[in-house]
Design a protein around this nucleic acid. Structure first.
Lengths: 350, 350
DNA sequence: GTGAAAGCGCTAACAT
DNA sequence: ATGTTAGCGCTTTCAC
């Protein structure tokens, strides 16, 4: 396709810039030990020749692993972040990316824990940081520190706006909420909807689920102004309390015909739903338990995305930019929202 | 993760097998010029050490492009195969795959044209072949010839069963038809459905769309035994005839409330649909015109997959196996079916 | 048929 | 602060 101009190499850059390959490499990777003049000459030569490093060669030659710190919520097996975690680890092991992950898991409910972990990360002097963004203020502060120290970082799954040089990989949460609302109401006209939330939401400072919930509420408000949304709270830390709580709630609002949870835990409502098969239900995220609920028919739709793919994609882009010495591209990398139900479940693997 | 046993290299293989690196390479890539004894020793050493080539190094070192022949239906701009074609070309240009595509496009309606192109491919002695499978018998014959000549091949988008060593990348067509049926009938109970087909279907020998159509019909038959499916034929080669034909058809069957086309051309029905906004409509594949129809509201659902991604994925796997000298893995690589409608359209890019 | 050796384009350790 | 150089693991040419 492209005309066969010889592709420029470090060697060409060195020649044009009038320096050695070593200097070129140092500039590209900001390893220090070069003069401002050299830097300018090198950068100009790169621009002039349209140089871009050969990934294959770079990966082959680079024997030093980049240490990248992962700052995410802690999790139990089978939970959302467990999937994300596994996706990251798998991707890191993939041939030749040259990344070494160091996990820093904080308590989702505990700001101090987040701050503590972020300090640890700074001390460990990583080559890069990937994190999600729950406690907005603290996240922003941490990100700014990283920027000062010239440590590249990226957001995974949710983010904070107004920062520079950000690579974001994840869904568009607001839109995912709208989509859930759409599916819940498609060809229906529900009078009363149950929005089930988890107790933690109430006290917690950061609420990562808010944008999605808002998307849901806005859609309903705009399209079904007469529909009432009743909110129920359940407590995942006391599993035995969940079904009774929902039953009580249902007794209070017997007009409810539709149910949604905008976080990843719709599976918690399955025992309740089984007793009330008439309730049309939508959930989010493809946890194994959610998938099971879907194939059993307890849940009608699941709005989701390939969690592990998001992880891989993030690591891939981030890793590439690291080994090529570029700042990660400032980009929202929204992944596609999948709609899952019993019938298209089979091909949904990985 | 894995314990740090040093990863074996060609050098190790050569040492263990008691031959030189050159010989190892010749054996791996079946380039000839080695004795049967060497081959055995090398293969044993490979197995013993669990050797697998380093992709980065292989790609870096390999300066010869693999020529791979693409045997697909010809197309007009914006048609399904146009997208596939573009996906293939893009993927081939991607950094370092080392593939050079040669396109062989045959007339979809003409067996002779297919056979002729497949002969041309044989004459061109490609390093590999990627094709789709319309004329089952002829495809099988061609595939067997390729097998004899030890030319690796893969199926893209649809395939023929009962062949060895096949990499298949594409959707599960039968299931996609079921899914279309599901979406068409979700919370509905249609009395009469229009199944619109294109005229060519009638005369053509191969009918690549049949499995999907069957999936659709079976789903309706099982779940809505009382529903009548009326089939209409339209002629895409005479665009001006389409809307009148549909109008006439509709006059004949005024009870029709739902419409589906199981090929990629739902966009052809848009002028008709605009006059009958009450008709609930499902189509397939994310051609630009289909997407437009969806966002206008003429079409309600689109069942689709990322055509260009399928192309990329296929080329990627095939290319990897070629440069590593392995036969392409025998595997059905079903891609996920996406459900598209107005609301999740935004994040559906690429 | 086989082995030796010269790269592929880049990185990083080592001189200076 | 800069240049030199020895690889990374594989491919491929060339000489035997």
């Amino acid at each position: 396709m492209a005309i066969d101009k010889k592709i420029p190499t470090v060697f060409d850059i060195a020649r044009v810039a009038g320096v050695s390959r070593g200097t070129v490499d140092r500039v590209i990777h900001k390893r220090g030990r070069y003069s401002p003049e050299s830097e300018i000459k090198v950068r100009e030569a790169i621009k002039e020749l349209g140089y871009s490093a050969n990934l294959n060669a770079a990966r082959l030659a680079s024997r030093t692993k980049r240490r990248i710190a992962i700052l995410l919520p802690s999790f139990k097996e089978g939970e959302y972040w467990d999937y994300m975690n596994r996706g990251l680890i798998e991707a890191a092991e993939a041939d030749g990316l040259g990344l070494q992950l160091e996990m820093f898991l904080y308590e989702q409910t505990d700001i101090e824990s987040f701050v503590g972990k972020s300090r640890e990360i700074l001390e460990s002097k990583p080559d890069g940081v990937i994190m999600n963004a729950v406690f907005k203020d603290e996240v922003r502060a941490f990100a700014e520190t990283l920027q000062e120290k010239d440590i590249p970082y990226a957001f995974l799954d949710n983010k904070v706006d107004g920062l520079e040089n950000i690579l974001y990989v994840g869904i568009d949460p607001y839109r995912s909420g709208q989509l859930g609302a759409f599916l819940l109401t498609i060809n229906h006209n529900p009078k009363e909807i149950a929005l089930v939330r988890i107790l933690r939401d109430k006290s917690q400072k950061g609420d990562p689920n808010k944008p999605r919930r808002q998307g849901f509420l806005d859609y309903i408000g705009e399209n079904f102004p007469d529909t009432v949304v009743h909110t129920a709270f359940i407590d995942p830390s006391r599993p035995e309390s969940i079904t009774p709580a929902l039953e009580a709630f249902y007794k209070e609002h017997p007009g409810i015909s539709h149910l949604i949870m905008t976080n990843s835990r719709i599976h918690l409502t399955v025992p309740f739903l089984k007793k009330h098969p008439g309730i049309f239900t939508v959930g989010f995220d493809d946890l194994e338990k959610n998938i099971a609920a879907l194939s059993e028919g307890a849940v009608d739709f699941l709005v989701t995305h390939h969690i592990q793919d998001v992880a891989k994609e993030c690591l891939y882009y981030f890793g590439e930019s690291l080994t090529l010495g570029k700042a990660p591209e400032q980009k929202n990398h929204f992944v596609h929202l999948d709609i899952l139900h019993r019938l298209n479940l089979d091909s949904y693997s990985k």
